[in-house]
């Protein structure tokens, strides 16, 4: 490769990286500044963070929204990982014609847009008194074709000899799953956890539909509420956006490597 080409390549990558990172960096800086300083274009950290935080707490019930978001997302992630990995394992290890057919039908569900099921689900859940509940939040997205597919792929690489040996030793099928499959497939679980937690935390449309009570609102809903007023306090708004982004960003950083690995597994 010539020097000119190499220079162009690095320049392109650096430009793309700056574009990708800048809005986030700006958000962090804005969260520490006064609204007027934000509109004046101040790009350095300020001293107004605590003040913004106080204003934010006064404007919206951030504490309960954070608690709700954590509660909904963690429970959803936990249940989802168990149900979907059981299914993925079942589809692969015990596969036969009938189960393969069921799997192809399940994959069709990937094509069903959420708006097409949202209205009947809302009607169903409101008559079952599931509005403003954790169960109501998790039911529609707890079992996803994507996760089932991912776990089915990973079960394919799980050695059958181990299963046979365990069966001869008299281990029940469910214990083989919990004691042997789960510990072996830690990286798949980590990837699935990242994806599921992020989707659950970021979900906006469904909570907006069923969380009709202000006490049950999630963090993204509360952040969106902040923009409804006539005058916007940019410092406070960006602090809210930052707080809303932190949990997913932390999960993302901790599990970044396994996330990419998990996607690789699903793509294969």
């Amino acid at each position: 490769m010539t020097k000119g080409k190499k220079f162009l390549m690095y320049a392109f990558l650096i430009l793309m990286s700056i574009i990708s990172v800048f809005p986030l960096l700006w958000m962090v800086m804005a969260a520490t500044n006064k609204s007027v300083d934000v509109t004046r274009g101040r790009l350095l950290p300020g001293t107004y963070l605590i003040e913004n935080f106080k204003n934010l707490l006064a404007a919206q019930d951030v504490g309960s929204a954070m608690l709700n978001s954590f509660k909904y997302s963690i429970i959803l992630t936990f249940v989802s990982l168990i149900i979907c990995s059981l299914a993925g394992y079942g589809f692969e290890i015990f596969h036969d014609k009938a189960k393969d057919a069921v799997m192809s039908v399940i994959l069709l569900a990937m094509m069903v847009p959420f708006v097409a099921t949202m209205i009947p689900l809302f009607r169903m859940f409101s008559s079952a008194h599931l509005l403003n509940t954790t169960v109501g939040f998790l039911l529609p997205t707890v079992s996803t074709p994507f996760l089932i597919m991912m776990f089915r792929q990973s079960a394919r690489s799980f050695p059958h000899d181990i299963i046979e040996a365990a069966r001869i030793d008299g281990l029940s099928e469910i214990r083989i799953f919990f004691q042997m499959f789960i510990p072996t497939m830690r990286s798949t679980y980590a990837a699935a956890m990242t994806i599921t937690f992020m989707n659950a935390w970021n979900n906006y449309l469904w909570p907006k539909v069923i969380m009709t009570d202000a006490k049950s609102q999630t963090m993204p809903m509360v952040v969106a509420n902040l923009t409804q007023g006539y005058v916007t306090d940019y410092g406070m708004l960006m602090l809210a956006v930052l707080i809303c982004t932190l949990p997913t960003a932390i999960v993302f950083f901790c599990l970044q490597k396994s996330f990419a690995e998990g996607i690789t597994g699903a793509v294969k």
């Binding site: 149900i83 979907c84 059981l86 299914a87 394992y89 079942g90 589809f91 290890i93 015990f94 596969h95 036969d96 189960k99 069921v102 399940i106 569900a109 069903v112 097409a116 099921t117 949202m118 009947p120 689900l121 169903m124 039911l139 529609p140 997205t141 707890v142 079992s143 996803t144 074709p145 089932i148 099928e173 799953f177």
Partner: peptide, 20 residues
């Protein structure tokens, strides 16, 4: 095998296909 996959399959059936 069916016991393993029924919860997930049933949920997808009830939460995607039935509402559709």
């Amino acid at each position: 095998g069916w016991a393993f996959l029924t919860p997930a399959a049933l949920l997808i059936f009830l939460m995607s296909f039935v509402p559709m």
